[in-house]
Structures are given as C-alpha cells and as structure tokens.
Design a protein around this nucleic acid. Sequence first.
DNA 1: TGTTGATAGTTAACTTTGTAACTAACAAGT
DNA 2: ACTTGTTAGTTACAAAGTTAACTATCAACA
Lengths: 141, 141
Amino acid sequence: MSHEDFELAGFTPYLLNQAAEAQSLVFSKIYKDRYGMLRTEWRVLFHLGRYGEMTAKEISQSAMIHKTKISRAVRDLEEKRFLAREVIEEDRRVERLTLRPPGKEAFDYLVRAAAEYEDQLAAKLGQEEAQLLKRLLKRLG
Amino acid sequence: MSHEDFELAGFTPYLLNQAAEAQSLVFSKIYKDRYGMLRTEWRVLFHLGRYGEMTAKEISQSAMIHKTKISRAVRDLEEKRFLAREVIEEDRRVERLTLRPPGKEAFDYLVRAAAEYEDQLAAKLGQEEAQLLKRLLKRLG
DNA sequence: TGTTGATAGTTAACTTTGTAACTAACAAGT
DNA sequence: ACTTGTTAGTTACAAAGTTAACTATCAACA
C-alpha cells in the first residue's frame, strides 16, 4: 500500500477509538449527569451490584483496572454513600465492599439504562450485525 | 433482561473500550517508543504527511480534535523538528504547517507500520471479518 | 520472638486532557 | 478612523489518569 492510499478512516485502531469514544459518550452522560460518577466508579458499582460483596483487589482483577484507580473510585463511591467498607477480621489489610441502598438504586437504574442502550444499538445495527460486532470485538480485547 | 443476566462482557460500549484500548496499545507503542509521540501528535503528523500543508484549524476540523489539543501537538512536533510553521501573509492569524525531513521520515515509517499492523489484523480476523468490522465501526463513529 | 518478603490498599508526584479565558488579527458597517 | 463581532491560535487552571513509593498487615521460617 502506498502512502497516498493510506487513510485514517480505514485504519482499525482509529475506527475503534472513534466508535468507542462516540458510544462511551452516550452512556457515560447518563451516570455522569445523574450521579456525578466517572467510568471507573460505574464499573466498580457494576461489579458490586452484579456479583455482591467483593474486595478492591477482586474488582481490580475482574475488571482489569489498576488498584489505584479502584482505590479512588471506592473512595468517591463511599463519599456518595453508595457503598460501605468493612475490614475483614481474618486479614485486616482487606476490606469487604458492599452496596448500600442508594448504590443499589443507582445500579438498578444504570443497568436498566444500559439494557435500553443495548436494545437501541441492536435496533440501529440490526440484531445480526450487533451480535457479530460483539463477537469480533471480543476477539480484539 | 434481569439484573442477574446483565454482563459487562456483553455490553457494547465496554467491549468497544476494551478492544480500542488493547489495539491502541499495540500501535501507540510504536510511535511512543520510537519518536516519543502522543496520539494527537501522530494524527497531526499523519494529516500533514497525507494531505500536505494544512493549517491547525483544517487539521482540527478534519480530525475532529479540539484546537487546544492540536495547538499542543503542533508545539511538540515543532520541538521535535518534525514540522515548520509559517505565518500566512494574507491572514496573519493563520499558520501554514508543513513537515520537515525528519517528520516525513517518521511519517513514512509510521504509515508502513500502520499498514503492516492492518495486514496482521486482517490475517488474524480473516479478510472478510476485518472488512465487516470496519464497516460496522464506521456506523458507530 | 524476630527478621525477611509478600500483599492490600493509600498517598504523592508527575503527565495528559479538558474547559475557559485570553491575545492578536481580521471583517463589516458606521 | 471606530466600534462591534468573529476567528485562529495560545495560555492558564482544573480535572483525570499514570507510576512509583509508601504504610500497615500478614506469612513463613530461623
């Protein structure tokens, strides 16, 4: 391929970034406007809502997010009264994190919004293509 | 869809982000390690290499990048001696940006690397699927 | 018990990004 | 010439993200 033919619009990493940014904007607006949350906070909230009590490290491993980001997200979610921390007796370095009622409510709302979002996307792309896209993306992650 | 069924791994914005991050890492490593460039710098360099001389505003519009990011990328590329700025006489607010030889070399190298990268991706996903992925991503950007 | 090494989580220093205000130059109408 | 409004690009400050170093706790073993 010669230089004259190479287009950013045909370069997959570029397209991935553009698509990810555009789509992320749509959904992040929801948790940002409604709860003042950042992306890492949403992911931590999601893990606790979906899987029940977890430690910071477990979330960190499951979500592949660095522990410092988790640490700050947990701090911010605690300030919002969305979660409670409790030191584990067996190992006092570790904290058991659980959602409090306001956190559960936010989780419920956001999961509903996420499902709606996903439905709209499937409607826009078509059921088949939406599934195919996800399969392809999983192979790249 | 009930809350118990909702998985991050099936949520398109999440998959897009993971894929974009993973792929971006592969290619950004190249221009970062070799030239100490950031993503915006690469995109500015690309535009100048691909389309010849442009103003900051033209790049900003074409790449959909905010003018402050462009401004900083241009400054950093100039420090690397990759580009030259020249005030336009007809309108002295505007600068004509052009690549200097080291910038051209970097562009050549990076376009080659990008094309290689794209080839490897196509080989990995299969020609058909790689094309399909790009078409789908364009509909989301 | 005491030392050594590992681990969970936090804090601190630095880099990058985002937003808003600013400067300099132009354009149009008075 | 003289305001008023607009535009190209920069600068300044705040918000986020990254990396490294730190604290407290635990485990293992001499």
